[in-house]
Structure formats: C-alpha cells, structure tokens
C-alpha cells in the first residue's frame, strides 16, 4: 500500500483516499492532541502571565528540594529528575509496544505495555508523594507557605497553578494508564489478533507520548525556570 501511495503521490487530495495516508481514527487522535495542546498551553500561558505580572516569584529550587527517605537534606531538582526519567522511559517502552504491534507480535505488545503501565503507576506514585509532601509543608490550593525569591510574601498563585496544572497533567497520566490497561486486556483477549492489526495500540501510544510531551513543558515551567 505504501507503494501505491508513492505512485499516486501527486494526487493526495484527489478524493477517494486519505490525503494523509492514515485512517480516520489516527487523524482524529492527532487533532484531539492538538486541541489538548491548546488546553495545556492555555494553562501554562496563564501561569506565565500571572508570573510576569508579579514583582517576584518563589524560587522552585527552594520549594522542590526534598527526596523520599532523604530527610531534610537539600536536594533541589533531584526528585523531579527521577519523575522525568520515569516518564521518558515509559515513553520508550510504549514505542516498543507500538513497534511490536506492527510486527503482530502479541507477546511483545503485552510485555511492553505492562512496562509502560508500571512506569505510569510509578510516575503517579511519585506525584502523590510530592503532593503529600507539599501538603505537609502547608501548600495547597489557596495556601502558599513559600516566600518570593526576594523575601517578600508570595501570593497563593504559585501553589494554585502548581496543583492545578500538575493535577491536570496527573489526570492525563491516570487516564493514559487506564487506556493502556484496557489495551493490555484487549491484547490478552486476542481482540487485535482477530482484527488483524494493532492500530489501537498506536493511538493509545500517541496519547501516552503526548502526556510525556506535556510533562517536558511542565518540567520546564515549574521546576527549571
């Protein structure tokens, strides 16, 4: 089919076939992700706007400096790096699951999906720990114990945005994990085997990578700058 696509290359838009060489489901997934990018974009841009309109802002390195089991030692950026790596690795396992799907390799698909699900749970666990830790420090929606970098009292918007945006991202991770579990069950039940293709895995994979992609920007906006 890829062959014919090349032959007809000049008539992509002539009708009777997809101008993108994809079936509609994947196209809709891409466009859904694009619109979801605007949801996240709006959140992060709102955060940026409020931050730009404040005279000073808390220094993330003073806020996110704890590590589970490390007591009160000052370890800026350490825990969030761990979370970032977990998400990147789970993205890699998802790529391998999708690839196994292309080869019709059922065992490979379920093996890599299980790893991806584990990665997703690990990330959610990390996030739960971080939220609990911050909560015990007195941070929550509407409560911000952290002063601005210049020593003045900070508005609550630092924590407001942090919990709203990481919460919204965490919700996406959670739904991604649920989708992946459903995919795993469907794989196990030979649903895709019977269909003859593993395209659903590919769409679930797109969603999962998108979650990773958003985290890259959350990481940038909340922890790095």
């Amino acid at each position: 089919m890829a062959q014919t696509a090349v032959v007809q290359g000049k008539q992509w838009w002539a009708g009777g076939k997809s101008p993108f060489n994809v079936e509609y489901g994947k196209l809709m997934m891409w466009y859904f992700l694009m619109s979801d990018a605007f949801t996240f974009g709006a959140f992060l841009i709102s955060y940026g706007t409020v931050r730009f309109s404040a005279n000073s802002w808390p220094d993330p390195n003073h806020v996110f400096n704890a590590f589970p089991g490390a007591g009160h030692s000052n370890l800026p950026l350490a825990f969030v790096s761990l979370m970032t790596f977990i998400l990147i690795i789970s993205s890699v396992t998802m790529v391998l699951a999708v690839h196994a799907g292309h080869n019709g390799d059922k065992r490979g698909v379920s093996k890599w999906l299980i790893w991806t699900i584990i990665g997703g749970f690990a990330f959610l666990g990390c996030q739960a720990w971080e939220w609990t830790h911050l909560y015990h420090e007195g941070a929550w929606w509407g409560m911000n114990p952290f002063p601005n970098a210049n020593g003045t009292a900070s508005s609550t918007n630092f924590t407001n945005f942090f919990f709203t945006i990481t919460g919204f991202h965490g919700f996406h991770v959670f739904s991604g994990v649920v989708i992946n579990i459903i995919m795993l069950l469907m794989t196990r039940n030979n649903v895709f085997e019977k269909k003859g293709h593993y395209l659903m895995i590919e769409k679930a994979g797109l969603y999962w990578h998108f979650v990773d992609l958003v985290w890259v920007f959350v990481f940038l906006c909340f922890y790095l700058v």
């Binding site: 009708g15 009777g16 997809s18 101008p19 509609y24 196209l27 809709m28 466009y31």
Partner: peptide
C-alpha cells in the same frame, strides 16, 4: 469538530478534490 475535520479531509469520495 474533530469528526467534521476528519470526515472532510479523509473521507471525500473519489474525484472530490478539495
């Protein structure tokens, strides 16, 4: 909206160029 876009772009009949 996703449906409208996907249908118009992907499901035009033969000869129905944009």
């Amino acid at each position: 909206g996703l449906n409208y876009i996907a249908t118009i772009l992907n499901m035009r009949t033969k000869g129905m160029s944009m």
